[in-house]
Design a protein around this nucleic acid. Structure first.
Length: 135
DNA sequence: GCCAACGTTGGC
DNA sequence: GCCAACGTTGGC
């Protein structure tokens, strides 16, 4: 089981949008490093849903329900996307500020490389963010 | 709205 | 193959 963190701007696609849909293609990723992470995802892996730009916080958990396949929004055939489903909405979102200030999360790939939209989390980091979301 | 980080493009 | 210019992302 692997853990991930995926970003979306909530005015384009929010956790609530995913919850309403039930299942969605995580499309539009056009960065090679992020693509590599999506190709490494396996069915059943869990990912933090993070709201960038607005909110700037982790808001919930989703599950990878379909592994990497051609991105339906891509005409070139070069890019892939996974499918995700909502799993749990956090009672209390965990802000970037909180994560940055937490020594246990100092090595998080997302914090070190803020522009990467799909990044891996260690099991310990994932668990710690869950703990923080419970207040 | 500004700016830093970083990926991509294009001239040489 | 190098590097400057430019565009995009994303935090503040």
């Amino acid at each position: 089981m692997n853990y991930w963190l995926m970003k979306s701007e909530p005015d384009a696609f929010s956790y609530d949008d995913l919850a309403a849909k039930g299942k969605a293609e995580w499309d539009g990723v056009r960065n090679h490093a992020a693509q590599g992470h999506m190709k490494a995802m396996r069915k059943g892996d869990l990912s933090i849903f993070y709201h960038s730009n607005i909110g700037v916080e982790a808001v919930g958990i989703m599950e990878i329900v379909e592994e990497a396949a051609p991105d339906s929004t891509d005409g070139t055939g070069k890019w892939v996307a996974v499918h995700v489903a909502p799993k749990e909405k956090f009672a209390k979102p965990v802000t970037l500020k909180t994560m940055k200030a937490d020594p246990k999360l100092a090595n998080m790939v997302m914090i070190r490389q803020s522009r990467l939209s799909v990044s891996p989390l260690t099991a310990a980091e994932f668990k710690h963010i869950l703990d923080l979301s419970m207040g």
